[in-house]
Each structure stands twice: as structure tokens, then as C-alpha cells.
């Protein structure tokens, strides 16, 4: 085995954990010697061998019976304790029977879940049951209960949103998004958690706690937390740039074209196909309330690309650029 190429490194490569640098290192090593390719392919085949490990038969419905029995027990225990209290009062205050019954009926129902979605090409602004304000960016969904519980306010976000959270120091406001959790008591900040894209939180005012699987950080205004491989990294950010999308500004900073295109698709509700070679080109710039053709013209000037618009479908072609990362 090559002295610098270890099994640890190869495993990282196969498991998609290798850094760009490590990948390049392996690729260099592969180019050096055909023997290396042979060794590599042996490991690769080992890695790719199909697993039949889940060969034992287990019966999910049988196991779930045990779970639902326990849930039923819990419910019975709850209503027994209510009946007992109820009986003590029934004799003296008969009038309350109807009311209590109604209360029991409604309190046992799960709170209704609501969902708001901003479609592609659309943005939404609305108020949550606690009075907090949400600006939802294109192609984003937020789920929340009709009434928040007594000890916290939890919502689930897919996509990007800006929050102006109503102050309530007894009930933290918690946003669950991707593998990130953002906790606040009352403040304004932007959360971006589109699927298959980098996740980040940017704070405009107040203090915000961001946690991932392994760590948590506290952000103050002008800071951005970005989730990278489970780790949270802090960056400074211009407050004027935070959630500029609310004012119709589409901004990019060192963004690969593959990311730019995904944002444009959501923003303008179009489908864009991009040639593989162009994906790594890096773009910085911002557009305020511009129509799509203007944006495409700028990209054309910057990268020397050509594009075709066919109804909602856009095709971008061109040669690889030399500014890629």
C-alpha cells in the first residue's frame, strides 16, 4: 500500500467523508500507477459488495401491538384520574357536567397542525398563533400547531424564512430545520435550511441559540452560523445583507453556479438545466427586483455562457470557467 494512502483515507473516500483535498490526493495517487488503480478497485468492490445482513424475520405488527397497548394503558390511566376528580364534584355542581365533558373532549384531541407553503416564485408573510411574524421565501414550508403548547413554541421549517419572534421569556421559540435547531426567546433572524443545501442562521437582533447534533453556539446580531458536516461555524455578516430577499434582493456571495441556478428556479419558478462543466463556476453579485432575463444577461457577460428560454424551461450552455473553487 502506498505510504500516504491509508485504508482510513479510502474508507473516508467511499463513505463520502473525504475533503476536497483528500479526494485530490487519492486521484493523484490513482494517476501515478496502474497498480494503484487495481488496489483501489479491490477496496471499492469490497465496499460495494451487497449486504444481506437484514436476513432475520421480525414481525413489525406484532411488535407494534405492544406499543399501542402501552399507549392505550396510558390513556386509560389519564381518564381514570379525571373520572375520580370528576365524581367528587359531580354531586355538588351538576351544571359543570356539560362544560367539563366538552373540555375533556376537546383537550384530548391533538392540536390541529397547520402548514404554510410559499410556492416557487412566491413569497409569504403571515403571523403565527403567538403573534410572531414569519416571512417565508420561495419554495419553503413551515408547519406549526394551531395553538402552541404551554412550555414552548415549536415549528418545523423546510427552506428559508425570516422570523420576528414575539417576546415570551417563559416559552422559547424553537425552529426545527434539517439537522439544526434554533432557539430564541424574542428576536429577529433568518434561517436557511433548503434540502440538499447548506444550512445557516443569521441574526439581525437579539440572541439566538443554534444547535446541531454535536454542538451549540450562541449568536449575536451580525453573526451567521453555518452547519458544515455537523459542526457549526461562526462568521461575521453585514446586517444589511441579512434576509435581503424580503426586499426583493437576490444576492450571491462566492456561490457556485449550481447553487445560483437552484435559487433562480425557486425565485422565478422556472426549470433551469446547466451544463456539468459550468456547475463549479463561482458567482458574486446581487439583483434587486430584476426580471429573469436581466439576471441571465449578467451571467452571460460574466461567464461567456449562452442560454435559451423556452416557456418555463431554460437551458444554459458554455465552457468551464477559470474562476472555479
Amino acid at each position: 500500500m502506498h505510504q500516504e494512502i491509508t485504508e482510513n483515507l479510502l474508507a473516508k473516500y467511499f463513505a463520502n467523508e473525504a475533503s476536497e483535498e483528500e479526494k485530490a490526493h487519492i486521484e493523484d495517487w490513482l494517476k501515478k500507477d496502474p497498480e494503484n488503480r487495481l488496489i483501489f478497485s479491490e477496496y471499492q468492490q469490497l465496499w460495494n459488495s451487497p449486504l444481506k445482513i437484514k436476513e432475520h424475520k421480525f414481525d413489525p405488527s406484532l411488535v407494534y401491538t405492544k406499543v399501542s397497548d402501552a399507549i392505550l394503558e396510558e390513556k386509560k390511566a389519564r381518564s381514570r384520574s379525571f373520572n375520580y376528580r370528576f365524581l367528587r364534584f359531580a354531586a355538588s355542581i351538576l351544571l359543570f357536567v356539560g362544560l367539563a365533558g366538552t373540555w375533556l373532549f376537546f383537550s384530548n384531541l391533538p392540536p390541529k397542525q397547520l402548514s404554510k407553503k410559499a410556492e416557487y416564485g412566491q413569497k409569504l408573510k403571515f403571523t403565527l398563533p403567538d403573534g410572531s411574524l414569519v416571512y417565508l421565501n420561495s419554495g419553503s414550508t413551515i408547519d406549526y400547531p394551531e395553538n402552541f403548547s404551554e412550555d414552548n413554541r415549536q415549528v418545523a421549517l423546510v427552506g428559508e424564512a425570516f422570523f420576528e419572534v414575539k417576546k415570551d421569556k417563559h416559552r422559547p421559540f424553537i425552529i426545527n430545520s434539517g439537522s439544526m435547531k434554533t432557539t430564541v426567546l424574542g428576536t429577529s433572524f433568518n434561517v436557511s435550511a433548503y434540502p440538499h443545501a447548506s444550512q445557516s442562521v443569521e441574526v439581525l437582533s437579539g440572541k439566538v441559540k443554534v444547535s446541531s447534533e454535536i454542538e451549540e453556539v450562541v449568536l449575536v446580531p451580525g453573526q451567521r452560523a453555518s452547519l458544515e458536516k455537523g459542526m457549526i461555524n461562526k462568521y461575521e455578516v453585514k446586517t444589511s445583507e441579512i434576509s435581503s430577499w424580503r426586499n426583493g434582493t437576490l444576492s450571491f456571495r462566492d456561490s457556485p453556479l449550481s447553487t445560483v441556478v437552484v435559487k433562480l428556479e425557486r425565485w422565478y419558478n422556472v426549470q433551469i438545466s446547466l451544463e456539468e462543466e459550468l456547475k463549479k463556476c463561482v458567482f458574486t453579485g446581487s439583483f434587486t427586483s430584476e426580471k429573469l432575463p436581466v439576471v441571465l444577461e449578467v451571467l452571460k457577460e460574466t461567464f461567456g455562457i449562452s442560454y435559451q428560454i423556452n416557456a418555463q424551461k431554460i437551458t444554459i450552455k458554455g465552457k468551464a470557467c477559470n474562476n472555479k473553487q
Binding site: P60, Q154, A156, S177
Partner: peptide, 29 residues
């Protein structure tokens, strides 16, 4: 998954069953 958890937090038993069915095989093995 996180939406299912949110529903479970709000006493929705069906969400528990969906989560169970999704991961039973992997977890039991």
C-alpha cells in the same frame, strides 16, 4: 422525520406508527 416528531409532540399517535414502520427493520436488526 422532524415533522413527524412535531406531530408526536402534539399527541398524534398516527405519526408514531409512521415513524415506527419507517425504521422498524433497521432498528430491530
Amino acid at each position: 422525520d422532524l415533522q413527524l416528531i412535531l406531530r408526536i409532540k402534539n399527541d398524534d399517535e398516527r405519526a408514531l406508527k409512521i415513524l415506527f414502520d419507517k425504521y422498524f427493520s433497521a432498528l430491530v436488526h
